[in-house]
Every structure is written in structure tokens, then in C-alpha cells.
């Protein structure tokens, strides 16, 4: 656990570069992401949307546009025309309402280390 935490801090520091992480770090990132996000989201390719959209292939895809998912006006207003990048995702996870003041998703994560783990896993979904 301790080594994960240390590795996690490094990810946070190196967020803008491509972090090279061992498989067990990805497993830890997955565990954390599934625990925090699976109430609303699914992660595997082709899985059905939940209360939120399926997140497979998130990085690099247009924001607020996924087949079969109805986005709220609040999300569309703020995100349409943008593309999900690591940087945008980091801003989003820091405070969804700072990015989209009328978003349905109310999530904020002050800890860069935790955000880095979530991003690490979501980035791997491709």
C-alpha cells in the first residue's frame, strides 16, 4: 500500500507527462476508480450506460457526445465542442461544478494524488 501511495504522488507530479507505472499500480488505480465511480459509470467496452455514460475510450473523445446517452443541458452547455484530455479530466475531477456549474455530476477531489489514480485508470481504457 505504501509503495502505491508513493507512486501515486509521483503520478500527480508528472501528470502532464506520460507516467510509466507498473501493473499493480494500474490495478490499484482500477480498484479505486471502480469503488468511487461505478455507482454511476461503467468501464468496459460496449457496457451499458448507467446514470452516467460508459467511460471506455474517454480520453480523446468529444465531450458530452456519446451514443445512447442523454446528457443534461448543464453538461452540454459547458462541455460541448471540447475533447476529453488528461488536463480537462483533471480539472473536471478537481471540481465538476467549476467546469460545468449546472452539471448533474457533483464530484470534487482536492487530492491530486487521488485524481491521478482515477486518470491513470480511465486513460488505460482504450
Amino acid at each position: 500500500m505504501k509503495s502505491n501511495l508513493i507512486a501515486g504522488s509521483l503520478v500527480a507530479a508528472a501528470l502532464c507527462t506520460t507516467p510509466a507505472l507498473a501493473a499493480d499500480d494500474l490495478a490499484a488505480a482500477k480498484e479505486l476508480t471502480v469503488r468511487q465511480c461505478s455507482q454511476c459509470h461503467t468501464f468496459e467496452k460496449g457496457e451499458k450506460h448507467g446514470q452516467g455514460p460508459n467511460l471506455f475510450g474517454l480520453i480523446g473523445r468529444p465531450a458530452a457526445a456519446v451514443d445512447g446517452f442523454v446528457f443534461s443541458d448543464g453538461i452540454k452547455e459547458a462541455l460541448q465542442g471540447k475533447t476529453w484530455t488528461v488536463e480537462l479530466l483533471d480539472q473536471w475531477l478537481t471540481d465538476t461544478l467549476a467546469v460545468a456549474p449546472k452539471a448533474q455530476m457533483v464530484y470534487f477531489q482536492d487530492e491530486a494524488r487521488v485524481r491521478a489514480k482515477l486518470i491513470r485508470y480511465l486513460e488505460s481504457l482504450k
Binding site: R35, Q36, L97, K102, A103, Q104, V106, Y107, F108, Q109
Partner: peptide, 19 residues
């Protein structure tokens, strides 16, 4: 309501810790 209530919490200095 979750949006407006949680925005007010943070605006008015309620410390909120999720997870």
C-alpha cells in the same frame, strides 16, 4: 438539489469529505 446544496456548503465554509 444536490448541486445547489453542495455548492452552498462549500461557499459557506462547510468542510466536505467524500469517500
Amino acid at each position: 438539489a444536490t448541486r445547489t446544496l453542495s455548492t452552498a456548503c462549500r461557499r459557506d465554509g462547510v468542510t466536505v469529505r467524500t469517500s
